[in-house]
C-alpha cells in the first residue's frame, strides 16, 4: 500500500508543491512524498483537524471541506479523507494553490481507494 500511496502522493507535487503526506486517524504518517518534516507535523495536523471539525459543526457531524494555512514562506493545504485520515500538501512561496487544490480534489477518491 505504501508504494502505491507514495506514487499517488507524488502526483500532487506540482505547481510549486514541495511535499505531500497522508496523516492517519491516530496522527501517524501513512505515506509521504517530497521533502517536509511530516513526522513532526503529523500529530499537529491530526490535532488541528479535530479542532477544525468542531468548528465545522462538531465531531462526526460535518467534516470541513479543506483548510489553508498561509505563511510568509509557503502554505499548507489540508483536506479530510473519509476514514478520518487527512491529506496535507506543503507549498513553497508563490506556488499555484488553485492548481494543487484541484489535483488534491481530483485524487481524493484514488487516495481513499489506496488507503
Amino acid at each position: 500500500m505504501v508504494g502505491m500511496l507514495t506514487f499517488v502522493l507524488k502526483k500532487l507535487l506540482i505547481g510549486g508543491a514541495i511535499g505531500a503526506a497522508l496523516v492517519g486517524p491516530e496522527g501517524e504518517v501513512l505515506g509521504q512524498a517530497g521533502g517536509a518534516d511530516w513526522d513532526g507535523a503529523a500529530p499537529l495536523i491530526h490535532k488541528a483537524a479535530s479542532s477544525w471539525e468542531c468548528l465545522a459543526g462538531g465531531p462526526g457531524t460535518e467534516r470541513y471541506g479543506g483548510a489553508i494555512v498561509e505563511g510568509a514562506g509557503g502554505s499548507l493545504l489540508v483536506m479530510p479523507i473519509e476514514d478520518g485520515s487527512v491529506l496535507a500538501v506543503l507549498l513553497g512561496p508563490g506556488a499555484n494553490q488553485g492548481r494543487v487544490r484541484y489535483e488534491m480534489k481530483k485524487n481524493i477518491e484514488l487516495i481513499t481507494s489506496v488507503v
Partner: peptide
C-alpha cells in the same frame, strides 16, 4: 513545524 514562517491567515471551508 513545517517551516513556512509567520502565518498571515488561516482559512477553513465548511458546508455552512
Amino acid at each position: 513545524t513545517l517551516g513556512i514562517g509567520e502565518i498571515s491567515d488561516f482559512t477553513l471551508e465548511t458546508r455552512s
